[in-house]
């Protein structure tokens, strides 16, 4: 078991509401999660499931209209909810850092790369320009960029997407954070570069002994990287467990559907259709009792209308939200 000291981030009962003309959009509902030093938590789900909102809520980067509620958001023992914006900004980029989806637009086009890296160190460490530059150069080399000194003087538009994402990673590492939140870090990259960037993240995590939260829609890339997985659907975590538990015994019908969507080179039969989940994500506006997945679920029945959000446990560390007993779920959904 992990000790209290190793729990870098603990979030309990996090909800994010966004007022919209037709009511209130519940982007995130009652999410619990924790990130452990040296471990990777993957938050998986399709677009609009609330995974990015969860990350932005933790970083206090939500859009202005969004309302956040939580019973706890603790980073390294500090209750982040109680901090002023000013005090929070001293932690952001310092003890926790974020890597964004699109490296093409996430860097400021008018400043050289070096300046954008160095300013973090100068802000949080109060270091001088030269010390910050040494740190930036070291990290660029560490993320696999050749000629870091030259690269630091270049501008974002002179670099490829893969290079820019490596720079974003170096940027996140500038102050040696305890937690990195990576929001779809490989989605905008070429497939060939995706694997490199993921491996890099994994290596750096070990080297810097950080907690990593990896947000992705691609369950396929999660298998090799994540220690724990939280599957989100329509604002809720519908299943959570260790990577082994989730892949060996997916319990929620949605998780099973996601796993069926992954092609396995060499295993998936040629010319067979890949699995897909019919239907679309339901509207998140207004109160929605019952299981949000029921309109797309093959097993849906009457009692899914009002039950289904109760958390049930399969075994230690593996829980799901579905009214059906585990045996029935396994028996019906898992292909032979």
């Amino acid at each position: 078991m992990t000790s209290e000291r190793d729990t870098i981030l603990r979030v309990r009962d996090l909800s994010v509401d966004i007022p919209v003309p037709s009511g209130t959009l519940h982007a995130v509902r009652n999410v619990d999660l924790s990130a452990i030093r040296g471990r990777t938590l993957a938050i998986v789900g399709e677009s609009g499931c609330g995974k990015t909102m969860t990350a932005l809520a933790v970083m206090r980067l939500l859009p202005g209209r969004a309302r956040l509620r939580a019973r706890e958001i603790g980073l390294e023992g500090t209750d982040l909810r109680s901090l002023s914006d000013k005090a929070f900004s001293a932690i952001r980029g310092n003890r926790m850092a974020m890597i964004f989806q699109d490296p093409m637009t996430s860097l400021n086009p008018v400043y050289p790369i070096g300046d954008q890296l160095e300013e973090i160190h100068i802000r949080h460490r109060g270091s001088g320009r030269r010390e910050a530059r040494e740190r930036a150069e070291y990290l660029l080399a560490r993320v696999g960029i050749v000629n870091p000194g030259t690269r630091l003087r270049q501008f974002p538009h002179q670099l490829s997407g893969g290079l820019r994402q490596r720079i974003m990673i170096a940027m996140a590492l500038m102050c040696d954070p305890a937690l990195i939140v990576a929001d779809e870090p490989t989605t905008a990259l070429d497939v060939t570069v995706q694997a490199q960037v993921l491996h890099l993240l994994k290596d750096l995590q070990a080297e810097f002994d950080m907690a990593l939260i990896l947000i992705t829609h691609d369950l396929g890339i999660v298998a090799r990287i994540a220690d724990r997985i939280a599957v989100m659907y329509a604002g809720r975590i519908v299943e959570t467990g260790s990577s082994r538990q989730i892949f060996a015994a997916p319990t929620h019908p949605y998780t099973q559907g996601l796993i069926d969507c992954i092609p396995y080179p060499g295993k998936t039969e040629r010319r067979t259709a890949l699995g897909s989940i019919p239907g679309i994500v339901p509207s998140l506006v207004g109160d929605a009792p019952g299981c949000m997945f029921r309109n797309r679920c093959a097993m849906a029945e009457e009692r899914c209308r009002d039950g289904g959000n109760v958390e049930r446990s399969v075994e230690d560390g593996h829980s799901y939200r579905c009214v059906h007993p585990v045996e029935r779920l396994r028996g019906t959904m898992v292909p032979s």
């Binding site: 900004s89 974020m98 400021n108 940027m171």
Partner: peptide, 10 residues
């Protein structure tokens, strides 16, 4: 990139 700047704690 403004969100990035905020995320950096500037």
């Amino acid at each position: 990139f403004i969100r990035t700047a905020r995320a950096k704690g500037l």
